[in-house]
Design a protein around this nucleic acid. Structure first.
Lengths: 246, 246
DNA sequence: GCGAGGCTTCGGCCGCGACCGAAGCGGGCG
DNA sequence: CGCCCGCTTCGGTCGCGGCCGAAGCCTCGC
């Protein structure tokens, strides 16, 4: 029965503390370099490299060169679903082991739900809100997949951005200096579709913050979607985002 | 960060081929003895016993004495969800490794969905249908949790069973000989609530088969829920069971 | 009450795999 | 062009944990 071995092989990958630490660190959807992950996992560079190679091999991670760095991220939503499922089993274990704090566990879970709904990824939007915005832009012909992992803003999209108040000029200026890509596809772990990163993504995020449609939760990447923001998403982008579970 | 260790510890449990084999074997919801599981996993008795003890300890399995045997089964739905989630990640790996049979994998998955919907557990109903029936009987005051892991059939339940055609006399006769418990709570892996086992559970299953509401799929524990059966469940038990995914 | 079957505990063996330091590659940046 | 930084490969060490056989415990059945 090959399925038995496949199960144990994948589980064994997540079954090492160093690898588990890396996977958890990548659950936020950011891509990280091998050295970062090594220090997060508390192992040396070579050891981390070996772990990462195994996880790439098994399809748990994907890697992308960026400059002289190699950035690793979760291979897809099924991987993060797996990690969540394992944590769901592991949570009661951790509880019973030390003084039982189901309340805090539930709070953590709620916080996770908030993260999945709306968060920043560096300085741009991610989560369901980020993906919904990107989806809407594509759907309405404002944004198209460009060469490589870039987005191309169409003429129609240019007009749309100016109309709703996105500071396109600043974003373009930043891109022209070469310091930053204008618009990049950034794959989101909790959603299927990529969202909008780069200078344009940051400009969108700035707009939502300036309009007070979303607000930074103190000390984290979570963004609170205000009622006015939910309304605005419907009115401006014609998208609906689900409410947070109670 | 304790959550990291908890994750890796649980994953490591599933990361051993012998333990993974046991977990997969238990995915059908049946409880098995240590010797059975040892031969399934291809290890000796003592080795299996050690594995089982660890999984009990971690809350992945639960054990129940029955005579001089000790029966092991999955601790709950979150455990089977975890295993499914891991397999979802492992499946592509197995595919690319050898000749890729996504069709058969999908067929297996569909078969699993059928198992979750309706199956036999020994000779009684299990799966969503089994649990739905048990839920309805409790909800309507026909069945109550009795002492230990027994169910108690109320007077109202007695009348109800006779009215819909369950062969109560045969079930009671069987129970009176002591050869069999009358009605036992049997925990179902794919559902929360226990379903009805014992002579009464078997009688219910016989009824559904006799009425042609369900039919045995050849060569398996899966039961096909006929359209008439779905209708009957609504009419007789006032429960709704979801359709199979296409 | 005694034997048998099922499960667990104990002790000891062995192999896999995590780990690190040192050395090798390769792409930026000054 | 050459240094530097980030990542990988190589070789060797070591400890954890899986594995089994033998022996012990408990429950059942004759």
């Amino acid at each position: 029965m090959v399925t038995t071995n496949a199960l144990s092989e994948v589980a064994a990958l997540a079954g090492d503390p160093a690898r588990a630490g890396m996977l958890l660190a990548l659950m936020d959807g950011r891509a990280r370099g091998a050295t970062d992950l090594a220090s997060i996992a508390g192992v040396s560079g070579p050891t981390a490299s070996g772990h990462l190679a195994k996880m790439i091999d098994a399809g748990l991670l994907v890697a992308e060169r960026q400059g002289r760095r190699r950035l690793f991220s979760l291979a897809g939503p099924e991987v993060s679903r797996m990690i969540e499922a394992i944590m769901a089993v592991a949570a009661p274990l951790a509880d019973t082991r030390e003084g039982a704090k189901p309340a805090s566990a539930r709070a953590a879970w709620r916080r996770d739900a908030r993260l999945r709904l709306c968060r920043t990824c560096y300085d741009h939007l991610a989560g369901q809100v980020g993906s919904a915005v990107a989806d809407a832009l594509r759907r309405d012909g404002h944004l198209e997949p460009g060469e490589g992992k870039d987005w191309t803003l169409t003429g129609k999209g240019d007009l749309f951005c100016r109309r709703i108040g996105v500071d396109l000029d600043a974003a373009r200026a930043l891109a022209d200096t070469g310091r930053r890509k204008f618009a990049r596809q950034c794959l989101d772990w909790s959603e299927r579709r990529p969202h909008v990163a780069g200078a344009l993504g940051a400009a969108f995020c700035d707009l939502l913050l300036a309009r007070d449609w979303v607000a930074r939760a103190r000390g984290g990447r979570a963004l609170e979607l205000k009622p006015a923001g939910r309304l605005a998403l419907r009115r401006v982008f014609d998208v609906e985002v689900p409410a947070l579970p109670a």
